[in-house]
């Protein structure tokens, strides 16, 4: 009883302060970008018009959107640079790269959902769903930045590229925005708020800590590596928790 209680209370450091702050930055900038961007895409809606006029007019909205986009670009750049540098310096495993196992895990989980498997796939630090979300937002973000620059500086761009790139960039920018928005609205919000496993809120990215119980369920391979046991033995390892010294070290 005591052990079980301790296990439930036991928290493992999952994200460093830098990542926590980075996530806050991304939340704020994407919220502003979505608000100021979607009202431009759906400009004919009453709500959009009300919002735009509340912000002092379309010029203000465009200005806010562009400079927030600049901020988002800096965040994206730092995310990529910090990630690459961390991997190069050997501090972290390149845990975000998509591997063959991710496809196998996806198929395994679908089978599990339909009852063909008894256990869900055992995932490492990031499961295939997290990777899918990360890469969609990363690649989408790069696309948004590129097309955003084209739309911000059309006269400069048309010194080199044909004029048709501008309306094409506009089409890409607004369509890709919808894709990222839907991904966030449906997928990310479900996984971090409404999913029965985390409801009412997955706090790990805000506090930096995750419960050991959730680690066993969601990231058993990483936990096993941390504690130096086989993934199958994690349940029994309540007493031997201190075997690993990696607890608290952010690992990416």
């Amino acid at each position: 009883m005591n052990g079980e209680f301790r296990e439930k209370r036991k928290r493992i450091r999952r994200f460093s302060t830098y990542r926590v702050l980075e996530h806050w930055g991304i939340i704020l900038t994407t919220m502003i970008l979505f608000a100021t961007g979607l009202c431009q895409r759906f400009w004919h809606l009453d709500l959009s018009q009300w919002f735009i006029l509340k912000l002092g007019g379309i010029d203000n909205v465009r200005l806010i959107h562009r400079y927030t986009g600049l901020l988002f670009s800096l965040e994206l750049l730092s995310n990529v640079l910090v990630g690459i540098l961390g991997v190069l310096r050997g501090r972290w495993q390149p845990s975000m790269f998509i591997t063959k196992k991710d496809y196998e895990d996806a198929i395994h989980n679908i089978r599990y959902y339909f009852g063909f498997e008894n256990q869900p796939a055992k995932c490492d630090r990031y499961d295939y769903m997290e990777k899918f979300e990360y890469w969609t937002i990363l690649v989408g973000g790069i696309l948004m930045i590129m097309t955003g620059v084209i739309l911000w500086l059309p006269t400069l761009v048309t010194r080199i590229l044909p004029g048709e790139f501008i309306p094409a960039a506009k089409a890409l920018h607004s369509n890709e925005a919808m894709l990222i928005f839907l991904l966030n609205a449906v997928w990310h919000i479900y996984n971090s708020i409404f999913s029965p496993e985390v409801f009412p809120l997955d706090t790990s990215v805000f506090t930096g800590y995750i419960s050991r119980e959730r680690m066993i369920r969601e990231h058993p391979l990483e936990l096993a590596r941390m504690e130096g046991v086989a993934p199958e033995d994690l349940e029994k390892n309540v007493a031997g928790e201190t075997r690993s010294l990696k607890v608290g070290v952010p690992a990416k």
């Binding site: 059309p154 006269t155 048309t158 590229l161 004029g163 048709e164 309306p167 094409a168």
Partner: peptide, 24 residues
């Protein structure tokens, strides 16, 4: 600072189709 390529950023009232502005 618009150059001679700039006006084609405007679609001349056309709706993009296979024959007109296929990229879009």
């Amino acid at each position: 600072d618009a150059t001679e390529k700039f006006p084609s950023a405007w679609l001349f009232h056309y709706k993009p189709s296979l024959s007109k502005y296929p990229m879009i």
